[in-house]
Design a protein around this nucleic acid. Structure first.
Lengths: 333, 333
DNA sequence: ATCAGATGTGGTACCGGTACCATATTTAGC
DNA sequence: GCTAAATATGGTACCGGTACCACATCTGAT
């Protein structure tokens, strides 16, 4: 494999000059530049990424840390991250955080000694001490789906407003008793959505706290919760699930119980994952711009790496109601 | 960040000695080793991965190249790869090949100049010249789902046998006219499955070539194909789809047409992705050991990196029939 | 004509490890 | 007691880039 010294020798110049040509910094005579370009071409030279990383104390690699890539929310997100990163010359290292929780050496230290350029956190397993560590060592990072704060840059979407949108849509579809399956309270987005639900329904006389039941953001939790809800409150005619996976679980449970969707019970999810279009009936959902969120996260991160410090701390994206079969009932009863 | 020289200074030894302690090679007196270990501890020293990579001309990083992570087959595979790789101290770079097909500089060159340790190809966009390149530059690699050959190590599963298993199961479930939706002919696994179907049904008097229709291994292709099949051959009572995604598509199309599954038509897929358990009715499928395939691929790759050259070239794993609702009909008519 | 600043190029220390070679000391065999 | 091998340690070139510094030449303004 050709090195910069080989190129220098062939072009009859010093390595400094070749380096200048490569990085387009410093003065280089056009004629010299051509000679160097020619040598590069002839040797099929490519600068070595590792050597560059060592010299610059920084590599063209980003890390994406997420709970579990098999969760259907994350493939699209990671695709966005990878695509945009690559467009800017960066590679992406994938880290499934859930599988390595109790590990002695944290991911972050591992990444630092690999001179990683920056990190995107799509996991909730990010502790305050990790944040301190990142800031102390000046490692650029962006966080997804977190509470707004001045401690870091966040990319998120309007969960609260989305939840209100969902409830409004269910009401508009003729539902008169809407339950909510909420996600784990330690996940901030789940709480926001729950709050959106509460604030939307509290004024109605049919509302009772028992209409809110916990799920785990997984399929099973949704099934379980829906079953429980329908057994205890048979007159529920609408379910708003805190995420799509639970909504699909709820749908599954209802179908098994012989309850017709949307005729007897309408269902609305949250996230806008591909799965909602696969099942039958297709699921109405509050769609987050997942790809855009991933793409934006990378762009902000690259901005930070480049040194811009004045990037907005919070980037909140709009969600949108996607109406599908699961809420298409004969309006108004 | 502490370097090896800092450790050497603190321990009162040379960098060579520290290096020997770190890599456990060469002679080091126990007492000296303790001093060094102590210094490492005190400085919270971690050897720098990039510097190591440069010195060794090899990094602790693997690349996983796949068509598209949003295809539901790949998240579990990539999780397996990442898990096992990390257990051995390796990181994994994710590459979505589909999105970068026509690019001037191939992925592989990019990875080589990053001193990547090895590559796992789960994509079909691997050309013969790429393979020459890999071999020429001695880059260890493993390929998934390819035809057996002596050119490289392959991890695959018994597609042909699986297809026969699927047809047998449909027959056992009482189907008397079984159609097949096959995947793209350029994908070898799709052809194997098709062949398995053909060899299983050819002897029956009901068999006609028109019972085989092409799909694209995607949801849409499955829907389209199923629709066409049922319109042209209303007496079909069983469909074997070349993969789960098309099977789910077929199911969706049938449900929309008001055809009952499994009562009127039974459906069997192939792959064993999570999606088959999510939908209702749940889908019978020929399950590949996806996680195990990923894990095995990494292990073989690591073996190659370590220098074992005698690893079996072809590793073929067993598939298994997973019977679910979509084929549970009142047996024998 | 003079000189400051712009332009152009080379030399080389450094990034943080590895591994080869040299050297010193200890152990063991005869 | 002598020599070969084993044990123990240090010095340093090298991996392949970057970037600072030194130095030379060329412009253009006064």
């Amino acid at each position: 494999m050709a090195t910069i010294r080989d190129v220098a020798k062939l072009a009859g110049v010093s390595v400094s000059t070749v380096s200048r040509v490569l990085n387009k910094n410093g003065y280089v005579h056009t004629e010299t530049e051509n000679k160097v370009a020619d040598a590069i071409q002839r040797l099929d030279y490519e600068p070595n990424a590792v050597a560059r990383g060592l010299a610059n104390q920084k590599t063209m690699t980003l890390a994406l840390i997420l709970p579990d890539i098999t969760n259907p929310y994350f493939p699209l997100l990671s695709k966005a991250v990878e695509n945009v990163a690559r467009a800017y010359g960066y590679s992406v290292i994938l880290c499934n955080a859930d599988d390595h929780l109790g590990e002695p050496k944290s991911y972050i230290e591992l990444l630092r000694q690999a001179y990683i350029g920056g990190i995107i956190f799509a996991t909730h397993a990010l502790e305050p001490q990790d944040i301190d560590y990142l800031n102390k060592h000046q490692i650029p990072f962006v966080v997804l789906d977190r509470a707004p704060t001045r401690q870091y840059s966040v990319v998120r979407s309007r969960n609260y407003e989305g939840a209100k949108l969902a409830v409004r849509h269910l009401l508009d579809s003729g539902c008169r008793q809407i339950a909510h399956i909420y996600g784990p309270p330690e996940i901030f987005t789940a709480s926001e959505r729950r709050q959106g639900y509460m604030d939307s329904v509290q004024a109605y006389d049919w509302y009772r706290p028992e209409l809110m039941v916990p799920g785990d953001f997984q399929l099973e939790g949704g099934m379980e919760a829906a079953k429980q809800l329908m057994e205890r409150h048979p007159d529920i005619d609408g379910i708003f699930a805190g995420n799509d996976l639970m909504a699909v679980g709820a749908l599954k449970a209802l179908l098994r119980m012989g309850i017709k969707v949307p005729e007897q019970v309408a269902i609305c999810g949250f996230d806008g994952i591909f799965l909602t279009e696969v099942i039958e009936p297709e699921l109405t959902t509050i769609a987050q711009p997942i790809y855009e969120m991933g793409a934006l996260a990378v762009k902000i991160l690259l901005g930070k790496i480049a040194g811009s410090d004045d990037l907005d701390q919070v980037h909140e994206l709009e969600v949108s109601l996607v109406v599908r079969q699961s809420t298409k009932r004969g309006k108004l009863e």
